[in-house]
């Protein structure tokens, strides 16, 4: 079973970040890490590929940097990577990102596409569904469990109340939630082999996609600081004050 996994290199969330003063885009340092969300997707892909004698190809968009994040995923065991690195794609919106990823995936042989539900830096949460639509394949989203017999895939889709069981025949896209599987630690042998694994770096033009970000950020304002709430001291009537406050906030 051939599995393509969408992954993203992001600045280390533990480090300070800065925005480009002109474009308001996130400044991406050379040293980036694999988005934590994607580790679940990579692990899921590896497990499926191991069960069904398959291969795992990473598909990514963004500045290459020193490829540390991609190497992390290759060290876990993925076979190869395709990275779309194009200056013109900086600050792309979700749809542009999806077009690029879909075009990169379409060049590969695949039975299954796996993605995290949303990236830790962008947080739009709609790219996986857009990629599936552009590829013309079904999407099974928010999976907390994934099973496949090699020709069809069924998942548990997380809902507010519990989960739905949904399935589709391959080729299919699955977006996985954090916790769907426990990501493995890269092995030292895997880390050393990762250097030799192929990373195909291409541009939007190579894929026949128009390189235009699709959006521009006009201004960025810091989120207002949280204001202290009102303290209610219970002198026997506190419950009435709490109810009144909830009514005023229109939540009851």
């Amino acid at each position: 079973m051939k599995v393509a996994v969408c992954v993203k290199q992001i600045p280390d969330p533990a480090s300070d970040y800065s925005l480009d003063p002109a474009t308001h885009n996130l400044v991406r340092p050379a040293e980036q890490v694999l988005d934590d969300t994607d580790r679940y997707g990579v692990e899921m892909a590896l497990q499926i590929a191991e069960q069904h004698e398959g291969s795992v190809t990473l598909v990514s968009m963004g500045p290459s940097g020193n490829l540390q994040g991609i190497r992390q995923a290759l060290a876990m065991g993925a076979d190869k990577a395709v990275l779309v690195d194009d200056e013109e794609l900086k600050g792309s919106d979700s749809l542009t990102t999806a077009k690029v990823l879909a075009a990169a995936i379409a060049r590969e042989e695949y039975d299954l596409v796996i993605a995290g539900t949303e990236s830790t830096d962008g947080y739009s949460g709609i790219v996986p569904q857009q990629v599936a639509a552009l590829l013309g394949i079904p999407s099974l989203t928010y999976a907390t469990q994934v099973d496949t017999d090699g020709s069809s895939v069924s998942i548990r889709r997380q809902t507010a109340a519990g989960y739905d069981e949904v399935s589709a025949s391959t080729p299919v896209l699955v977006s996985v939630t954090a916790g769907v599987v426990e990501p493995r630690y890269p092995t030292f042998k895997g880390i050393m082999q990762a250097k030799q694994k192929p990373v195909d770096t291409v541009t939007a033009g190579d894929l026949g996609v128009e390189a235009s970000p699709g959006q521009a950020i006009r201004s960025v304002q810091p989120a207002p600081a949280r204001e202290a709430g009102e303290k209610v001291v219970d002198e026997g009537e506190a419950h009435l004050q709490v109810v009144a406050a909830l009514e005023q906030a229109k939540v009851v």
């Binding site: 020193n66 490829l67 540390q68 190497r71 992390q72 060290a75 630690y185 890269p186 030292f188 880390i191 050393m192 990762a194 250097k195």
Partner: peptide, 14 residues
Amino acid sequence: DDQEKLIRSTVREW
């Protein structure tokens, strides 16, 4: 180098 850092970060995370 990158490989040294990746080995270190893997052990640190574990």
